[in-house]
Design a protein around this nucleic acid. Sequence first.
DNA 1: AATGAATGAGGATTCATTCAT
DNA 2: GATGAATGAATCCTCATTCAT
Lengths: 196, 196, 196, 196
Amino acid sequence: MSQPLLPDARRPANGGPKAAARNRAALIVAAREIYAAQGLDAPLSSIARRAGVGQGVLYRHFPDRDAVATAVLEENVRQIEEAAAADDMLFADVLGVLTWHLTESAAFLGLLHVRGATGRSDALAHALTLSDRVERALRERLPDGHRLSAPNDLMLAVAMVSGATNGPTREVREGRAAAAWRLLGVEVGPVRPFDA
Amino acid sequence: MSQPLLPDARRPANGGPKAAARNRAALIVAAREIYAAQGLDAPLSSIARRAGVGQGVLYRHFPDRDAVATAVLEENVRQIEEAAAADDMLFADVLGVLTWHLTESAAFLGLLHVRGATGRSDALAHALTLSDRVERALRERLPDGHRLSAPNDLMLAVAMVSGATNGPTREVREGRAAAAWRLLGVEVGPVRPFDA
Amino acid sequence: MSQPLLPDARRPANGGPKAAARNRAALIVAAREIYAAQGLDAPLSSIARRAGVGQGVLYRHFPDRDAVATAVLEENVRQIEEAAAADDMLFADVLGVLTWHLTESAAFLGLLHVRGATGRSDALAHALTLSDRVERALRERLPDGHRLSAPNDLMLAVAMVSGATNGPTREVREGRAAAAWRLLGVEVGPVRPFDA
Amino acid sequence: MSQPLLPDARRPANGGPKAAARNRAALIVAAREIYAAQGLDAPLSSIARRAGVGQGVLYRHFPDRDAVATAVLEENVRQIEEAAAADDMLFADVLGVLTWHLTESAAFLGLLHVRGATGRSDALAHALTLSDRVERALRERLPDGHRLSAPNDLMLAVAMVSGATNGPTREVREGRAAAAWRLLGVEVGPVRPFDA
DNA sequence: AATGAATGAGGATTCATTCAT
DNA sequence: GATGAATGAATCCTCATTCAT
């Protein structure tokens, strides 16, 4: 009936409405870090804890586990889209940005990497959408007659590189990614984030 | 002198050592099926149930979760080793066997696919060992001057193909794997298990 | 991944399979007491605690909340059925047994008392079944031409009496029940449990 | 001197004391609807939402959960009192109004129906008060020598009818209530609200 | 006087692992 | 050597209540 039997105690500052946006951002940052460290199955409570907020806040901002992951990936995808839209970016440069995200976060890797038959249909749906956006962005800069011009080859190659992109540190992962692109005979620009 | 004239019918037949081996095999079969259906995170209890044994038996044969997965993969790896050791097998044929396992089981995919820093250090250790065995087997049949002859390229390519190998059904996964090898310019023999 | 991070500690005796039946019984007893004290919405954990078992045991024996309630009521209903089947029991006597259960347990009261539109459709289904059994038992001893012979009047009367049966102590509730039957012009035998 | 030339459009109009009363009324209406749909255990937040106000407003007007329920019932009781006070109302007519409230709302049913020992002592206190008011109102119109004239019989009968008054729709509940009164040999006027 | 974000306790549920029999 | 019940920590999720704005 009544929930907080001990509701008196010290109640940590509220922060008010202004804090809402800040909290949401903090949650995404925290989620990114936790995902990188523990993978996509990390407990949501640990994300809330690292963000320095109560669990309820997490649920207020994100209805479920997938929403958190999507929010984290959203920004990665947006960077790629922005890179593709920016002036003077060659296909290789956009690939460089993509590759950076691939090496930077295990979570992003998971995005393209839809696990088989785990029954996570919702995540799948989201992943497909994000995956589509990535493909569209890449294709914007894809030169005619490129090695990966065939309909499915572009994202196939991305998946392949993502498969190769593992290793304990970002540097190692970056090295593997570079080797993988080389093996595919695809030129890649500098591997770096896109801070327009 | 004294034989159990009235064996306690209540206790489900023990069977002795013979049954032990049978149980171990049943557990591995069950685990493979469960992993395929539910992924590597499936509850151990479901594996025991499908094997038709108590949970205790599972723990008798495998000290922990990772040991079960390793045992399942063990057999896959052995098949590849046997394929490589068989007469008349070309590199492409061994790759075909490898690819079959890649497409057949999400678990095997995970093997080469050691996720970064997930804290599964034990699994990592096992995976490396198994990975080494796969590499050794492949290299046995690798022709001189092959496209993948450079020190790291062989397993890099395998990882890349495994990255591409996802999809709802084995057929889809097989198609993707074939496309991936093609993109790498590597010839692959018939994709099939090796029942010597 | 791994659940019990602190699985070593002191592990309270297991009891083995023999304890299973005992535990189930203890759970039902505990549930009856908790229901009487706190109502049907009491936390399942409190039932497990009072029964002196872990929460898992409760879930092993009862898949969900409704199953617990049903198990508790089951026995009450059986008593009524047995009373109706016993020699020399008059209709009034069976009503006495029914009334005893009505006054003894808030949970039993809830049985006939299916709350409207609370969305508890499963409980409803169970309740209907149990309710039917009660009706059948009563009707077995219902004399021809009795005041409550009309199709719906029997259980309607029971519901009415149950509506009147509230109060802080069993004695008070029993008084109210008696008054209610009197108001209906129905004779009731001694209000007591049926320990055949 | 200084008027807010630029009212902060960001803050959803305050409205002053006039709005306060309006909010309180909206909350009660909302609560009645929510209770009808989801039962008395519905989250307070859903009541506030349906009333179109923030949660804080709810707490400004009602100190706790019980206060909300009481406020809802308050109006039902007042209707009964008004019916009893109106010209030309016979006992049967007042019973009709009472019965209408009984069938209209599961919450009102709960009022007379104080569950035994559920620990809701506050609700109990309130309920008793409201119950007394209902009794007083009914007794105002109770003819001498009526079937229910004995001290406790009046509210006992009401409790009995409320016990019978369950069912999925108001129509079903009304049918049961009518049958219950008939079984008690009490005549009831038209079952309807009292909009004087 | 209102808003609605935040807190965080509480309850449900699941499983890895142990252990009496 | 096998069984399967029991434990209980961990995680998920909900909501009453407070409070900055």
